[in-house]
Computed example of a mutant assay.
Amino acid sequence: MTVRIENGLCYFKLDENGQEQSLPATQVKILTDDGKAMSYVDLAGERIYITEVEADALTGVGAIDGRKHVKAEEPGSLI
């Protein structure tokens, strides 16, 4: 899991060594990468991709939900 939430603080795992960056939930904005059809959080210019379950958990503690629905343009697409 990329995200850990404790007492209104959101901790984002930045690398495989376990380094984390934390922000208050109210300063987190969840966005959508249209090309990948995935949600992410921008931390100091770096995209941290998160699952929809993580995105929902973040919005539940006060993060800004800037996601948008992505529609498929090709027949048979999963999205």
Rank of each mutant, 00 (worst) to 15 (best):
A25V: 02
T26R: 10
N7V: 08
S39Y: 12
P75Q: 10
D42P: 01
I30Q: 10
M1Y: 11
V3P: 08
D56H: 07
K36W: 02
A57I: 07
V61T: 14
V61I: 07
A55D: 03
H69T: 11
E16D: 12
E52H: 11
K29L: 10
I64G: 00
L43N: 06
S77A: 15
A37D: 08
T26A: 09
V70E: 03
R4K: 13
G62H: 06
Q27R: 08
P24G: 13
D56T: 08
N17C: 06
E6G: 04
E52N: 10
T26G: 02
P75M: 07
I48N: 14
V28Q: 05
P75L: 12
S77M: 09
Y49P: 12
A63S: 09
E16C: 03
D33L: 05
V61L: 11
A44K: 08
I5Q: 15
G60H: 09
A44E: 05
D33T: 06
I30E: 12
A37N: 14
R67P: 03
V53D: 01
G35V: 05
V61D: 09
T51Q: 09
V3G: 03
G60Y: 04
L58K: 15
T2S: 15
Y11A: 12
M1I: 07
A25R: 05
A55F: 06
V70I: 12
Y11M: 03
D15I: 01
Y49D: 13
A37Y: 01
G60K: 12
K36M: 10
L78D: 12
A57W: 07
E74T: 11
T26V: 05
A37M: 00
E20K: 13
G60F: 11
Q27V: 01
E73Y: 03
T26W: 03
M1L: 07
R47C: 06
L78F: 14
L31K: 12
G60M: 09
L43Y: 03
L43Q: 04
V70D: 05
L23P: 02
G62D: 06
S77V: 03
Y11Q: 10
I79M: 09
Q21I: 07
H69F: 10
G35Y: 05
L58W: 11
L9R: 15
E46R: 08
A63V: 09
L14P: 02
Y11C: 04
K29S: 15
V28M: 00
T2C: 12
F12D: 04
Y49R: 13
E73W: 08
V41G: 13
V28K: 00
D33Y: 02
T2P: 15
Y11H: 14
T2G: 10
L23E: 04
E54H: 08
A44D: 13
D42M: 11
M38G: 06
I64S: 11
A25M: 09
A55Y: 10
D33N: 11
T51W: 04
E52P: 06
I5Y: 09
E54L: 07
I79P: 06
E20M: 13
H69M: 13
